[in-house]
Nucleic acid binder design. Structure first.
Lengths: 235, 235
DNA sequence: TGTGCCAGATTTGTCTGATAACCTGACATA
DNA sequence: TATGTCAGGTTATCAGACAAATCTGGCACA
């Protein structure tokens, strides 16, 4: 359990070094960087380390490698957006993540009301239908909840909303599951169903303002139920 | 120019295979997976390929490796959130990204008004001060613009807002630069200064509602200037 | 019985050398 | 000019080895 000054791997150190060098020298996209052999000589390490360092940059989307050609600086647009995780998903990190999710869910509801196509509305209706039967477990309840929100994200026609919200849901799902463990299922089920129903109705009616308001209420309610100290919003 | 069925690297294929296996079998975090030697035998490839595949999973945050111990499934909270890029940052992708940025900037302004500390307000004031002198180049203008928005993100006290907004800005900055190339600098400068001033004043006055409204106007104005067909929002 | 320590086995990190697949540019040829 | 060929350079993969960190079991000792 030696958790002292943890020295990063050799390859990681070289990768960060290369990264700062790439960003600092502002090589235009497409620029070829040194060959592996040159880097071996420059840093005095074996090829395995160099290759692993370059692999890290490639996974981060900073460079692209082509066999026989070399490694090239990638276009900024080709780089994935990456949010480093909090050290631990503790209560504080959860709050912050929920704070980020809040405006996105609200905007997604509004966009969905404006952009949804027939197939999207059908998917939303299907997700709603899962609440007609009484829910039998926390697991199923949370799953149905996530499916509903995912359907809204899809209806925005914006893949970024889909990805961000899916990633956030993935992180906070188990916390929500844990928080709901002590609740009476029937009450939760009824409340969720009613709030989701309002959102669904507004989207189907293509009323963005109502959709945003309904989602805002839903998110605030959910936060309160989990025990989040939600800051008061100005009406 | 052989752009036919581009076969992914061996290591990538094995990495995705392992990933689906990890996610499907739902091994709890901390579970140790096979040793490199076992994988070599199972897949019939060299150790280099296995190591590179595992490196990909490690970079994606799915597993963690410890020398002498093995590779372990990482906790979901430890995984970075990752948004895969659009194939190309064309006009359509830009629109969608701007659509994502919109509610985040607005909410960030509101949160900043509630959460900003003295140092944050000072940084905001410094960013505003850069607009006092007449701007001499598009480059400097855009840089000052980004600095201002970054100061707001920092004032939210929420690292997720900081990261997401920084990443988005990074992607759309060069498009904005290009769009502003044809504008008269003086007009743009005056308009930006005035809008930023309103936002800054609202945050400093700790008025979240006004801050949101000012940022909403600023974002809409920017979108219009770039030529985005902004959808009409319900008041 | 319980605890601390040590030696050996196991596993990942790094090194070295070699071969295969691939790309690029130059050159000869028609 | 256009095209095919070839040589050299570069990355991808393979194979084998040693170093360093970790785990495991047994043993001495209190």
């Amino acid at each position: 359990m030696t958790e002292f000054a943890r020295v990063p791997q050799l390859s990681t150190r070289i990768a960060t070094l290369l990264q700062t060098r790439i960003e600092a020298e502002t090589w235009p996209p497409g620029t070829r960087l040194q060959t592996e052999a040159q880097m071996m000589q420059e840093f005095g390490v074996s090829r395995a380390v160099i290759r692993e360092a370059i692999a890290q940059l490639r996974n981060a989307g900073l460079v692209e490698t082509r066999q026989g050609a070399g490694a090239f600086v990638a276009a900024p647009g080709a780089r994935p957006i990456r949010l480093e995780p909090a050290q631990a998903m503790d209560r504080r990190a959860f709050d912050k993540l929920y704070e980020l999710r809040n405006p996105l869910e609200i905007e997604a509801a509004g966009l969905a009301a404006q952009q949804a196509r027939k197939a999207d509305l059908a998917r939303l209706a299907r997700a709603m239908a899962r609440f007609d039967a009484p829910e039998e477990s926390i697991e199923a309840s949370v799953a149905a909840d996530l499916e509903f929100h995912h359907a809204i994200a899809l209806a925005t026609q914006n893949p970024y909303f889909v990805q961000v919200l899916a990633a956030i849901s993935d992180r906070i799902a188990h916390v929500i599951r844990a928080a709901r463990a002590g609740m009476t299922l029937a009450d939760l089920h009824a409340r969720t169903r009613s709030e989701h129903g309002a959102i669904c109705a507004a989207i189907t009616a293509r009323d963005p303002k109502a959709a945003r308001a309904a989602m805002r209420a839903h998110m605030a309610g959910g936060a309160a139920r989990i025990g989040l100290r939600q800051r008061q919003r100005p009406k």
